[in-house]
Design a protein around this nucleic acid. Structure first.
Lengths: 219, 219, 219, 219
DNA sequence: AATGAATGAGGTTTCATTCAT
DNA sequence: AATGAATGAAACCTCATTCAT
């Protein structure tokens, strides 16, 4: 009589294991490329068991998506509650997204694919999730404007810059990465910055783009 | 007599029609989701003819990718040749990317998917193409720093911000778009800016992020 | 304390409920079309419980068949015991069959399917049951001939006419029924007879077909 | 070169062979019991080819049904055109049905199963076909009444008696048949009639049931 | 250059049945 | 007596690819 169950392979309930396995597989191969068989194997169950628990491939995919967006929203709320200054909050916003992408490396991949497919597989809840995250960003930017530290910008554009850069940088094809390192596009003219610094750079640039500036650049 | 043939449906040679059809299908569904049958139908030929012309699915995909990256690089070179001031060039850089994405809506989709999949389907030439585009950006930024209008930044990050925001915004799921409009995340506090302005906003923010600033914001 | 248990859903023991549910499902879908899961659900138990009680699908089917044929034979004996004139008995025979089909609408369906399948699923007992019913009919016809009211006919043919017409008419696809009503094949030349009269018509025609006639029709 | 094709196994085009094979399989096993694999094997093609030609199992089934009902209607019209007396036509009606069932032994089985299932698989065309056949019967009965040889009866009931008896007798389970022979239900009291005579008996009884009689039997 | 037909391998899903509790 | 979970086998169907013409 163990505490909860804990006897099958790996930890967590069967369903949890299936969803976890599916998240990886879907991230690697996309919805169409993913194989139910492979997910089952990764989860240590057989196909029939998988179907018993999740119904079908699409339903499984939706579960995965929900999990993934949910994680970001929750984490964001947790971290934001500790700060009050707008620029701090924006920094947090960027960091949390990057960090979430780091800890759930499947997330950016899945999100990018979904965007690319025009969201044909997307459950309504995913859209709500994204919209919720944007809400938080909008409030931060608004607060910043009232504090006088930000100027008026479109929240969506800021969000897309962060997500775009973060997602792509977190998930650059290995071969591309090595070519870039060779050509030293990762650093500035003479720099030697590491990939890890990309995160910081994104944060810095976003803050700067958004900040109220006395000197307007260009035409 | 017509230039080449001019009897089959639509314009262009059979091969060209196949590649065009494939570009659309691959963009919509991704490599695994795309169906050879569907491509053939779109091109107005039958599967056997398609195989006669392109060999197999993967080879067709590579042709598509090459086409797509090629278009951006060529266009970039054309437009850049007309300007010399660094901030103008950066503006051009952003505009050309956005415009290319507009005119070849399949491009951002395909690129995002490739990034997501870790580039497993990618031909070497694609990487070279992207790297070439980055080269141009690096030179622009470098020039700007020498002119004193830009500060030192990582070219890759700038590129990712542009591509990320551009790609995603050009290709946002319709449903998401309408939710956002409802929640007015597209405009600022009281604004009512249209989707079309997103392009301008990206341009503006990127320039600002990169520009040499006297007043450093935040911490 | 109830008679046997009296705590589960619906009336009757679990086994009885399962058999009843199975009867309906098998009638609607046939042996191959029926789903063990569906039967269990209808019975308000789960699959494992069903297996505990009945062994397997085929065994369950046999139970159902036996139940169904048994009901007709028993009822026939009850009703026949009250009459002695041959034509009365024949009428009773027809009525009992029709009535049984009415009250156990699964019966005709199951019987027809079994006939169609060549009786591959049939337990021996089913054949004995049918044979027993035919025995009774043969005796009635024989008695009628001795009374001089019937002429010599093949009992099987009479039985098949009754069962065929009764079974089919009791179980005509709804759509067919409505088409027929529209085309007024249900009534005579100008008639407007209702579906319910079909039973009476069968009875009438059978009696007439079997009766000793002075005037032979046709060539 | 051969006249049309004639090189694959068996005669007729591939599609024809598939439909023929399907007719047999569906008759033997019913829709749910039939296996696509088995049909393909019987037809001498592989599953993929079968799907190429017919789309899916249900579509194949509908083709079969249509074929089967079509055959009866066509044959009926052919034979009826040669006669004019109502009683002759009715005899023809019965004979054609019986004969069609003999030559297409799958027909009665399929029809019975369809009736049993409540016509859930039935394409509209099947119902129209059956309705068309009934139309012809109705006209025959009507003509007979005008000639004074038939009395008013419900066409549907007559049809069901014929089809019921014919279908069932043509397709009685072998084991049942032998039990009946043993119990001599096939013959009258002392008779020794053969199975083959069942057809004649049906014909005779139907005519008698329908004929205008001077002496009404029973109460 | 183009086509209808065919194919093998494999994909998703279903189902009767059993196991551990 | 009853259950949720698991399983192997097999069913239906799809797809990239090739063949004969």
């Amino acid at each position: 009589m163990g505490s909860t169950r804990g006897k099958r392979r790996s930890s967590g309930g069967t369903l949890a294991r299936i969803v976890r396995a599916a998240t990886v597989e879907f991230a690697e191969k996309g919805f169409d490329g993913a194989r139910v068989e492979a997910i089952a194997k990764r989860a240590g169950v057989n196909k029939a068991a998988l179907y018993y628990h999740v119904g079908n491939k699409k339903a499984l995919y939706e579960r995965v998506i929900l999990n993934v967006v949910g994680a970001a929203a929750v984490r964001l709320d947790e971290k934001l509650s500790g700060t009050s200054r707008a620029d701090e909050m924006l920094r947090t916003y960027v960091r949390v997204l990057m960090q979430t992408f780091d800890e759930h490396p499947e997330m950016p991949r899945i999100i990018m694919r979904e965007m690319a497919s025009g969201g044909s597989h997307l459950p309504e809840a995913f859209l709500k999730g994204v919209s919720g995250i944007l809400d938080r960003l909008a409030k931060i930017l608004d607060a910043g404007r009232k504090e006088g530290v930000f100027e008026e910008v479109m929240p969506l554009v800021v969000h897309l810059m962060v997500v775009g850069a973060a997602a792509i940088s977190r998930h650059m094809p290995a071969r591309l990465k090595s070519m870039l390192r060779a050509a030293s596009h990762l650093g500035g003219t003479g720099g030697e910055r590491l990939m890890g610094e990309v995160a910081g750079e994104i944060e810095r640039l976003v803050i700067k783009a958004v900040s109220a500036s006395k000197a307007r650049p260009g035409g």
